[in-house]
């Protein structure tokens, strides 16, 4: 008896995970369950760099002949370009290993539909607060990222999304800011003059950065003290709505499917 239905491919969602933080892998598990319930794939697997099953281990578990590999990462870079291909023995977008074919898709964060996910998350944090923006044209949407001089791709993708959101004219302003490189999150009050601000952290999980570091940089709490106030936060006469990390948004499961669809179109796979 085999779990593998030859007509259906398997899905392998690749996450980072953590050896110290339980929340790090939560979104990857959450999206895997969403897709498992859709019954599109014969098998849905998760694997992690820092948790079990690791990338290498996961290969032994997959029985289907066709495997879509989708990195649950917000940008391309060291992990998607070096670590994942090395550990999963991928030789390019399409890899044949004995009787299995692996299709290596782009990371979820690179899909064009991420714009809709960001806008949805911004609207959701407003809706769940029970308060409305007085005038969206007099407000600012911030997208916050980590920023690092080790990988410029992560900032490029945020700036690309900010450009797209600006062109929609939904908010009077759309800005980006980073934790570790200018424009800095801690300078948010000087980066916009708008009195109402919605901020979405462009992170895959609600970890230390989005839960603790950024609220401190925003002046919503102090080092070592969990965020106590609710949205909208009142800061020096401004109202600030701070959302959960974009990677926890349930719509990311749709982006995983969208990346597979895009891969099939690009490589003419029916």
């Amino acid at each position: 008896m085999s779990l593998t239905c030859p007509q259906k491919p398997a899905l392998l969602i690749v996450g980072h995970g953590s050896t110290v933080n339980a929340d790090s892998s939560t979104p990857t598990y959450q999206h895997a369950w969403t897709l498992r319930k859709k019954n599109i794939f014969s098998e849905v697997h998760e694997c992690f760099w820092k948790e079990e099953p690791n990338f290498h281990q996961s290969l032994n578990q997959i029985e289907a002949n066709t495997v879509y590999v989708v990195p649950n990462f917000i940008s391309s870079g060291y992990f998607t370009e070096q670590v994942i291909p090395r550990e999963l023995k991928l030789e390019g977008p399409i890899t044949q290993h004995q009787n299995q074919t692996f299709y290596y898709c782009d990371p979820v964060g690179l899909h064009e539909s991420m714009t809709e996910v960001l806008l949805h998350r911004a609207q959701e944090v407003l809706d769940s607060s029970g308060e409305k923006l007085q005038d969206p044209q007099e407000s600012c949407l911030f997208i916050f990222g980590h920023g690092t001089n080790l990988n410029e791709n992560s900032t490029k993708i945020i700036e690309h999304q900010v450009e797209k959101i600006r062109s929609r004219n939904i908010y009077g302003e759309c800005q980006f800011a980073y934790m570790e490189e200018p424009p800095l999150v801690k300078d948010w009050k000087s980066l916009t003059s708008k009195k109402e601000v919605v901020a979405v952290p462009f992170f895959i999980a609600d970890g230390l950065h989005s839960f603790i570091d950024i609220p401190v940089l925003l002046g919503l709490t102090e080092e070592g003290i969990p965020l106590q106030t609710k949205n909208p936060h009142l800061v020096e006469g401004r109202r600030l709505w701070y959302a959960n990390a974009i990677g926890t948004e349930p719509l990311i499961a749709d982006l995983i499917l969208a990346q597979i669809k895009k891969f099939n179109e690009t490589h003419r796979i029916s």
Binding site: M1, E52, P53, Q57
Partner: peptide, 30 residues
């Protein structure tokens, strides 16, 4: 049986595939 396999994958990732390969003397040891 399918859900049992999934439960075992959640509880002990790769355990069944490693044991199966080891028993059949095809497990790759790194």
């Amino acid at each position: 049986f399918e859900d049992l396999v999934l439960a075992l994958r959640i509880l002990y990732p790769s355990a069944i595939s490693h044991w199966s390969a080891w028993s059949q003397q095809i497990l790759q040891i790194t």
